[in-house]
Simulated assay, not measured.
Amino acid sequence: MQVGIDPARIEMYNLSAAMGPRWAEICTEFTEQVRQLGPSPVRPSSKNTGN
Rank of each mutant, 00 (worst) to 15 (best):
M19R: 08
P39E: 12
A8C: 03
N14Q: 11
I10E: 10
D6E: 04
P39F: 00
S16N: 08
P39N: 14
G38S: 02
N51T: 05
I5C: 11
M19K: 12
L15V: 15
S45L: 13
E11S: 14
K47N: 13
W23R: 15
Q36I: 01
L15M: 10
Q33G: 07
L37F: 02
G38P: 01
A17S: 09
N14A: 09
Q36L: 04
S46F: 08
Q36G: 06
K47A: 15
W23Q: 11
E25W: 03
R43V: 15
G50N: 05
P7I: 00
G20Q: 12
K47R: 15
E32W: 07
M1D: 03
R35H: 06
V42S: 11
T49S: 10
S46L: 15
K47M: 10
Q36P: 01
S45M: 12
E32G: 15
T28D: 09
P21R: 13
E11F: 01
E32F: 06
G50S: 08
T49Q: 10
P7W: 00
Q2W: 03
A17W: 06
F30R: 12
Y13T: 14
L37Q: 09
G50R: 08
G50T: 07
S40R: 06
A17N: 07
P7V: 00
S16T: 11
R22L: 13
R35A: 10
V42Y: 06
V42N: 14
Y13I: 10
L15G: 09
I5Y: 04
I10S: 07
R35F: 01
I5G: 05
N14T: 12
D6I: 01
D6F: 00
V34R: 03
V42H: 08
A17T: 10
Y13R: 12
E25K: 10
M19A: 15
Q33T: 15
R9M: 09
Q2T: 10
T28C: 05
G50Y: 02
I10D: 06
N48Y: 04
P44C: 02
S46N: 10
Q33E: 10
